[in-house]
């Protein structure tokens, strides 16, 4: 007797056409079709989305929280990547 629930899948919902797919939660299912149907029943009962992605959770690679500081460090001292770094004279319109 096995009560296993099958692998875990992460669910992403697109709210409106053109918008990014946003992570909304996860669920268990044995295959893609089951995952998609379960995602529909569990996460879009009120028109929350018009498209769904389901991704096996073990296919997701994440940065490690302990290394957060050094991992993102290269971006910290490059303020010239931001538009506000630059001086633009008045009178040239919006830029």
């Amino acid at each position: 007797m096995s009560d296993s629930q099958g692998p875990l899948w992460e669910v992403f919902v697109q709210k409106k056409s053109g918008q990014p797919f946003v992570h909304c939660g996860n669920l268990h299912a044995y295959d893609k079709e089951m995952a998609l149907q379960n995602a529909r029943d569990l996460y879009t009962r009120r028109g929350e989305g018009m498209a769904l992605w389901v991704v096996p959770s073990d296919a997701i690679v994440s940065s490690s929280p302990e290394d957060m500081g050094s991992f993102f460090e290269p971006a910290n001292d490059k303020i010239f990547r931001h538009p506000t770094f630059y001086q633009i004279p008045d009178g040239v319109g919006h830029m």
Binding site: M1, S2, D3, S4, G6, P7, Y30, D31, M34
Partner: peptide, 15 residues
């Protein structure tokens, strides 16, 4: 519901 879980698990194993 046990038979449903068993069938699903057997299918998962086959996959």
């Amino acid at each position: 519901g046990e038979w449903v879980r068993e069938a699903a698990a057997a299918y998962g194993k086959k996959l």
